Simulated scan of single mutants.
Amino acid sequence: MSKETVRRWLYFLAGGGLNTLLTYGIYLLLAQFISYQKSYVIAYISGIIFSYIFNSQVVFNVKKSWKGVLAYPLVYLLQYILGALLLNLLVERLGIPKEVAPILIIIALLPATYLLSKKILNSTSA
């Protein structure tokens, strides 16, 4: 693995950690003033925007574009679909506790999320 690939992975993981803290903080703040469902939606969308900006500028170093902004949520849609399918498999078929399964899914989907982000950002950069 090249030095650049290792750097990208480390930044990708760091960005994911920052994104988690940011979206959770936004959720907690907004939930004091508006419904938790609306807070969750706003926080989730904020996370997608942060992820797009961070990954395009810091991780993959590509130029931002409207095409990228519009295409990037596909990463999260595909991640959600794969995660939901895996969750069902792990809990219902393999008997893994529902409290543990999401952690395994996050770890399992990291490579796919990284590769999807890279592909979409590289193909949509200005």
Score class of each variant (00 low, 15 high):
Tyr11Ser: 12
Tyr114Thr: 13
Arg93Ile: 15
Gly47Ser: 11
Pro73Gln: 10
Gly25Tyr: 08
Gln32Lys: 11
Gly47Lys: 08
Leu10Thr: 10
Ser39Phe: 00
Ile81Thr: 13
Leu10Ile: 13
Arg7Met: 02
Leu109Ser: 05
Asn122Ser: 14
Lys118Pro: 06
Ala71Phe: 14
Ser56Met: 04
Ala126Phe: 06
Leu77Val: 15
Leu90Gly: 09
Pro73His: 11
Tyr40Trp: 12
Leu85Arg: 11
Ala84Gly: 03
Asn61Ser: 14
Ser65Ile: 01
Val75Met: 01
Tyr72Met: 06
Val69Glu: 03
Ile45Thr: 08
Ile106Asn: 00
Arg7Pro: 09
Leu18Phe: 14
Leu28Arg: 14
Tyr80Asp: 01
Leu115His: 07
Gly68Ile: 13
Tyr27Asn: 13
Val62Gly: 01
Trp66Asp: 03
Ser51Leu: 09
Val59Ile: 13
Leu109Asp: 09
Tyr44Leu: 12
Glu99Gly: 04
Leu110Phe: 07
Ala14Asp: 01
Ser51Asn: 12
Ala126Glu: 07
Trp66Val: 12
Ala31Asn: 03
Ser35Met: 02
Leu94Asp: 00
Leu22Thr: 07
Gln37Asp: 12
Lys64Ile: 12
Phe33His: 13
Ile48Met: 04
Leu74Ser: 14
Ser51Thr: 15
Val91Ala: 08
Lys63Tyr: 03
Met1Gly: 14
Ser125Thr: 09
Leu104Thr: 00
Gly16Thr: 11
Ser51Glu: 04
Val41Asn: 05
Tyr76Phe: 15
Glu99Ile: 14
Tyr52Trp: 15
Ile106Pro: 01
Pro97Glu: 03
Leu29Asp: 02
Ser117Phe: 06
Phe33Tyr: 14
Pro102Leu: 00
Thr23Asn: 14
Phe54Asn: 08
Leu109His: 08
Gly17Glu: 03
Leu77Glu: 01
Leu28Glu: 09
Ala43Glu: 00
Ser56Glu: 11
Pro97Arg: 08
Tyr76Lys: 09
Tyr44Ser: 14
Ile26Gln: 04
Leu13Ile: 05
Leu104Gln: 02
Leu109Thr: 09
Leu82Gly: 08
Val59Leu: 06
Gly68Leu: 04
Thr5Cys: 07
Gly95Ser: 13
Leu29Val: 13
Gly15Glu: 04
Leu21Glu: 00
Ala14Ser: 07
Ile42Trp: 00
Ile53Pro: 12
Pro111Tyr: 04
Leu29Glu: 00
Ala112Leu: 11
Ala31Cys: 01
Lys3Cys: 04
Phe54Thr: 13
Tyr40Met: 12
Ile105Ala: 01
Phe60Pro: 05
Glu99Asp: 10
Tyr52Leu: 15
Ala108Gln: 02
Asn61Phe: 01
Tyr52Ala: 12
Ile53Lys: 07
Val91His: 04
Leu94Ala: 10
Val59Met: 07
Lys38Asn: 07
Ile120Leu: 05
Val41Lys: 07
Asn61Arg: 15
Val69Arg: 08
Tyr24Pro: 10
Ser125Phe: 08
Val59Asp: 05
Leu77Tyr: 02
Thr20Cys: 13
Lys119His: 08
Ile103Ser: 05
Gly15Arg: 07
Ala14Gln: 04
Leu78Pro: 09
Gly95Asn: 15
Tyr11Val: 11
Gly16Ala: 10
Leu85Met: 07
Asn61Val: 11
Ser117Cys: 05
Gln57Ser: 10
Met1Val: 04
Tyr76Ile: 11
Lys119Cys: 02
Lys38Thr: 14
Val75Gln: 03
Ala101Gly: 00
Ile45Ala: 15
Leu77Trp: 02
Val69Asp: 00
Leu116Trp: 05
Gly17Lys: 11
Val41Arg: 09
Leu10Tyr: 09
Ser39Ile: 12
Ser125Glu: 09
